[in-house]
Structures are given as structure tokens and as C-alpha cells.
Computed example of a mutant assay.
Amino acid sequence: MLFNSTKLTLANVMMIGVIMTICSNNWISMWMGLEITLLSFIPFMQSKIKTSSESMMKYFIIQSVASTMFMFSMICMLIGVNMLNEMFLSISMLIKLGSAPFHNWVLMIIENISYMTLFSLLTIIKIPPLMILYQINSKIILLPIIISMIVSSIMCINQSSVKKTLGFSSIYNSSMMLISMNKVGLLMNYMLIYSLTMLPLTVMVSKLKINYMNQMVFNDFSTWMKTNMWINMLSMGGFPPLMGFLGKLMIMQNLISNNQNLLTSILMMTSILVMLFYTRMAFTSMMTIYSLKKWIINKPDLMKFIMSLNLTSTPLILTLKSVL
């Protein structure tokens, strides 16, 4: 009970740091919000895995380096030295975000943390750096966007680890968020869609204790469990007309309206690769005949709701957008 209350307190402190970073109007408050979020998130990384302490140290060192760069840029601005400030600020936030080419630290630590901690790392923790990048309005993030889309989509094809697959997918989605940096409403909508799509998949693979793709073949899951996992994987890959496709459609519409033909072409080509490895995971999970075991917790009503949300959200939202 004491452990749960401590985690709840740390979660509240972490959310305070996130909100503080988002709502701040000066750089010092933003830096304080980033540090509060960092220090409150590190205890969540501790798990039953023996090497989780190593991941905690790696995460702390990388984030400290990024925070030092951010503080250095802030001090330069305060004393009136503006040379390369934008570049240092952007690089420090790209490191915290885990975007390519500064993405290796994400892949090093995700294998040793739990799935729910992984979900927080790939969604909630990304919000403060994204908001700071939005306020910087940097023009030098085009190259990291292109590198993130190409590297993550190609490197994930040969992956057998579910956590690393989610990590590479997060790097790819980070590039999508950076593309929508000029419109904060679009950015928040995409983050919400990505979080709602990733949460059911993360909960299911955590409950079923799936760490590698071959564990999806030799399984005894129920039909509802398999179908729900299948739908969620396709949604993460952006398969129409599921919820994940809605985010890609919004990003592509924004790119086409801004005449960014290069990014649109790269996005379309790399999204095919992303859809490829998620489709491979989906069909792997549906390959074998099952036998339902008594220890499988089956909640058909909840699974029906999640599948209905994935299937109906895209046409429903597009219809409302066209009518309103």
C-alpha cells in the first residue's frame, strides 16, 4: 500500500512537471519543469529485472547531458550571446525526445523496464520537449525528421523484440509530431491518437507477458484477445480505416496544404514499411489455433469496446469534421 501511494505521489509530481513546462512563459520555469519530470520518472523505471538499475543510470546520464545543453543555451541568451543558441536548444530537446540521430539511448533502456513505464516514456515524457520545440520554432529539425522516418522504418523490419518494435515505432511517430510542430492543435491531436492506440496494445502484451514475436505463435489466447491484439497492431501501423490511420491522414493533409512534397513522399514510402512490420506482428498473433485456458482473463465487453473504437473512430471523426 505504501509503495502504491509513493508511486501515485511521484505520478502527480511528474504531471506537475509536465504541466509546468507546457504552461511556462520563461526558460527557467521550463527547465525546472523538465527536471521535475526527469527526477519523478526515474523511480518508475525500477522493476524486477536485475538490469533495470543500469537503465535508470543510462537514462539519468543522457537526460542530464541534454539538460546541461539546455541550461548552457539559456545562460547564453541571458548574457546576450545568441550564437548557435537555436541549434543547442533544438539538439537538447531532440535528445530528450529520443529522435534520430539521438535515438540509441531509447533502445538501450526499453528492454529493462516494464510495459507501462515504457508507455509513459514514449508518450507522456515526450510532451515537455515537444512544447519547448514548438516555442523555439526551430528551422533546423527538417534533417532529424527525415532521418527518424527512414532509420526507424528500416531498422524495425528485422526486429524480433516487441519492446524494440514499439521503440522504433515511437521514433517514427516522433518524426510525425515534429512535422506538425507548426500547429500545436494538430500536434496534440496526433499525440492523443497515438496514446489511445498504443495503450490497449501495451496493456495486452503486458498482461500476456509477450516479449518476443515468436511468443505470439505459440500461444493459447482466446479469440477476442487475438482479434483485439490484431486490430490494435494494425491500428498502430496506420492501416485504414482504423484510428492510427486518422493521425497519418491529418499529418499528410497538413503537409500537402503547405506544399511540402519531399516530406510527403518520404512519409508515404516509410509508412508502408511501418505498416509492413505491424502487419507481420498481427498475422503472427493470428496464425495458430487456440485452446482457451482458465487462467486467461477474458473481458469481451471491454475488448468489443476497444475494437469498436478503433474501427469507427476514423470515419466518425472525418464525418464530424466535414459537417461542422
Rank of each mutant, 00 (worst) to 15 (best):
S53I: 12
I146V: 10
C76I: 06
F168E: 07
N12D: 14
P129V: 04
I179K: 00
N298H: 13
I22L: 08
A11M: 14
I306V: 11
L84G: 09
L262S: 13
K163W: 08
S92F: 02
S257N: 14
V106F: 01
T37G: 09
M275P: 00
G33K: 01
F72D: 08
E35Y: 05
I210E: 06
S64D: 04
M252Y: 12
S322L: 15
N26G: 03
S161T: 07
L263F: 07
N25A: 06
S271T: 03
L2W: 11
A66N: 08
K226G: 07
K163M: 08
T312K: 06
L318S: 02
K7D: 11
N228L: 08
F88W: 10
T9A: 13
F70V: 05
M287H: 11
E54Y: 10
I317K: 01
Y134C: 05
F218C: 14
N254R: 11
V106M: 05
F60A: 05
M191R: 05
I16L: 09
W295V: 14
M116A: 10
I140M: 15
M204F: 09
M71W: 08
S148L: 00
D220T: 15
E35D: 05
P241H: 01
K207H: 12
N214Q: 10
I125V: 11
M268G: 10
P240E: 00
S180F: 08
K48V: 13
I19C: 07
K48T: 14
I22A: 05
L78V: 11
L94G: 02
M281Y: 04
K321G: 14
M45S: 03
L302E: 11
M69E: 06
I136H: 06
M204V: 06
Y172W: 03
I42D: 06
M225A: 15
S55W: 00
S235Q: 00
T165G: 12
L267K: 02
L318V: 04
I146F: 07
I141T: 08
L8C: 09
I289C: 13
Q135R: 15
T312A: 08
N25V: 07
